[in-house]
Design a protein around this nucleic acid. Structure first.
Lengths: 339, 339
DNA sequence: TTGTAGGCGTTATCAT
DNA sequence: ATGATAACGCCTACAA
C-alpha cells in the first residue's frame, strides 16, 4: 500500500518535513512560492494526511463512538442516521458498536471506543445494564458522554429521549376514551428507562380515569425469537379489551399471535417505535401508533455531544431532554372484544 | 484522560519499556518473575495497549470498513449484523460508512476508510456508481475488497449476492402461473447490478411462457420520498394485472398507492427484501415475497474478506457467489384486476 | 534476561 | 523562511 507521506513530498521537493507540514497547513510564515509548490505536488500525488498519526499525536481521533443495543432495529438505524448527519457536517466520523443487549459487551465495547480514542460517546444502554459505573468513571476522566433513548439518572450527563411518559399516557388515554377498561400492557425488560417511563404513563392515564392498576395485565418480554406468543396467550387469559405494546417488535408479535388465534382486535396501540408509518398504515388489523422522533433524537444527541467536545467552556447541563412523540390513530372496524 | 501506557508500567517497576512490552506479549526470553510482576501490575491498572499506536506501527488496524448506501434499511442492517458477528469472532472491529446513494460520497468514504487503515473493505455500491476505478486502484494496491449485494463485474473481486435472477424468475413465474399476463415491474435505478439481475429474471420468465416483453410495464424509481406514487399511477395506465416490485420500499409504496386509490390487488410480489417476514405476513392486502438471506450474505462476505486478509496465500477467487432466495406465497382473496 | 535506539507520520518547539 | 529535533505509544533489531 504505497501511501504517500509528508516525507515523500519533502524528499521530492528537497525540503524538510516541517516545511512541508507548514505549507500544507497554510502557515503564514512560509514562502508563497514554496507553499504553492508543495500544495500543487501534494494534490498531484493525492496526498492525504494519516489520521492515525494525527490521532496518536493529538490524542484524539475526530471520531465519535455510537453504542447501541442493535443496529438492525428501525429506531436505532434512524437515530444513527441523525447522528451521522450532524457528525458529518462537523467533520467527524462515526464508529458504531452493538452491545446485543449484553452488559458485558457494553463494557467491552465502551473500552474499545475509549482505546480507539473516540472523542465522545453516544450511548443507548443495553437492556441488561443496571449499573453505569463504567460510564461514570469515564466521565470523571472528562470523556464527553451523551445518553439517548435508554438513559439513566445514575449518570450526570445530558440525555435525549422521546417523551415516553407523554406518549404512553396519550396512547392509554385514547384507549380508555374509546371504551376500554382492561388494557393489557406488553412491554420490554424492566431495567431500561423507557420501560419505566412508558409504564408510568400507562399508570397515570389509568389513574386519571379511576381505573385500578392491575398487575396481571402487565408483562415484560425479552428479545428472544419466540417469547412474545406465550406471553400474549398469558395476557389473553386475563380477558383484556385492548393491548398497548411498548415497541414495534412487540406490537407486531402481538398482532401476529392474535391473528393466528383468529382473535379480532378492537384496537391495539403500539407505543413508540413505529417510525415506519408506511408499514403501520398497511397493517391488518390496523393499529394506532405513537411515533418516535428517531432522527431528531439522534441529531439532538449528537449536537449535545459536540457542544461538550468543542465548546469545552460550556458546562454540559446534565438533564434529560424529552422530544414530543406524535400519536397516529387508526380506527379498526371491529370491536368484538369490547365488553 | 489519564490512560496508562507501557511507559508508566516501566517507570513504576523500574524496568525498560521493551521489557514490559515483551512481558506483556509473553515473550519466551523473559524472566518468569518479571513477567508475573508486569502482568499483575498491568492488570491492576487495567492497562490496554493503544490500538492507534499499534496501527501506526504495524500499518494496519484490525478494523474492517463496511460501506453501504444506507444503514436505515432492513436489508443492510441485517447484513451488517452478519458481518459484525464474523468480524467480532475474529477479533476485528467494524467501522460503518454510509454513501447515501451518492457516488461522490462513496469515493470520499472509501478514501476515509483507506486513510484510517482499514484492513479490508466490504462494499455495496451506491446506486449512482457506474464507474469503479476508485476501487480498482485500491485493489492494485493490494487492499482486500469484497463486494456484496450490489456488485460489479468491472471489479475482479469476490462478491456475494442473493440469487436475484432466480428470485425474480420464481416471482414472475408464480404470477404467470396464477393467470397474470401483464405484470408491471417497479424497480430501482438501472445502474445497480441487482436491478439488472432482477429484470433479467423477470424477462426470462416472460420468455419461458411466451409473453412478450413490454417496456411500458417497467419503471425505475429513485430513492426520493414521493417518487413512487406517480410512477404507480403511470403504470396503472398500462392496465397491469399484477405488480412485481423490486424492493421492500417500492413494494410498500406500491401497496400504499393502490390502497389510496381503492384498487384491489390480486397479488403483488415484492422481490427481495422482505427479510422482515413478520411485517409481510400482517400486511393488507397480502403480498407474496421473495426473501433475501441478508444475514448469510453478510457472514459469507465477511468470511471471504478475512480469507483475503489473513490467508494471504490463497488467491481470492474473483467470482460472484449467489445465495438462494426463498419465496413466500401469500394468496390474497381478491382478483378483481385479472382480465 | 534486559536495555538502547530507531521508526511508524505528524506537528510543535526551538534553532538558524 | 526553513531546518533539526523531540514527542505521541508501541514494537523490535541489536547490544550488552
Amino acid at each position: 500500500m504505497d501511501t504517500i507521506t509528508i516525507k515523500d513530498i519533502a524528499r521530492a521537493l528537497n525540503l524538510s518535513t516541517s516545511t512541508v507540514s507548514r505549507a500544507l497547513r497554510d502557515s503564514y510564515e512560509i514562502n508563497a512560492e514554496t507553499k504553492r509548490l508543495v500544495i500543487e505536488y501534494a494534490e498531484r500525488l493525492n496526498y492525504r494526511p494519516n489520521p492515525i498519526a494525527l490521532s496518536l499525536k493529538e490524542n484524539r481521533s475526530r471520531v465519535i463512538g455510537v453504542i447501541v443495543p442493535q443496529i438492525a432495529n428501525n429506531f436505532f438505524s434512524q437515530t444513527i442516521n441523525g447522528i451521522e448527519a450532524v457528525a458529518y457536517s462537523r467533520g467527524y466520523h462515526v464508529i458504531i458498536f452493538q452491545t446485543h443487549e449484553s452488559f458485558e459487551r457494553e463494557i467491552l465495547t465502551v473500552q474499545q471506543a475509549v482505546a480507539r480514542k473516540a472523542d465522545g460517546l453516544l450511548i443507548s444502554l443495553s437492556s441488561s445494564t443496571s449499573d453505569v459505573t463504567h460510564l461514570c468513571q469515564l466521565q470523571e476522566k472528562k470523556l464527553p458522554i451523551v445518553l439517548f433513548d435508554r438513559v439513566s439518572n445514575e449518570l450526570d450527563s445530558p440525555s435525549v429521549t422521546a417523551d415516553n411518559f407523554g406518549g404512553a399516557f396519550a396512547a392509554t388515554e385514547h384507549l380508555i376514551q374509546t371504551g376500554r377498561r382492561r388494557i393489557a400492557h406488553l412491554t420490554i425488560p424492566p431495567y431500561i428507562s423507557i420501560t419505566q417511563e412508558r409504564l408510568a404513563g400507562y399508570r397515570a392515564a389509568l389513574d386519571k380515569y379511576g381505573i385500578p392498576y392491575d398487575e396481571s395485565l402487565v408483562r415484560y418480554a425479552g428479545f428472544g425469537q419466540d417469547e412474545v406468543e406465550p406471553i400474549v396467550d398469558d395476557l389473553l387469559r386475563q380477558s383484556p379489551d385492548a393491548f398497548f405494546a411498548a415497541s414495534d417488535r412487540l406490537a407486531l408479535g402481538c398482532l401476529e399471535a392474535l391473528k393466528k388465534r383468529n382473535i379480532a382486535i378492537p384496537e391495539t396501540v403500539s407505543l413508540i417505535g413505529f417510525t415506519n408509518i408506511t408499514v403501520a398504515n398497511l397493517l391488518s388489523p390496523s393499529m394506532s401508533t405513537v411515533e418516535q422522533p428517531a432522527l431528531e433524537i439522534g441529531q439532538l444527541a449528537a449536537e449535545q455531544l459536540f457542544n461538550m467536545i468543542e465548546g469545552k467552556q460550556k458546562i454540559p447541563q446534565p438533564g434529560i431532554i424529552r422530544i414530543p412523540t406524535r400519536m397516529v390513530i387508526r380506527e379498526s372496524s371491529q370491536r368484538s372484544l369490547v365488553g
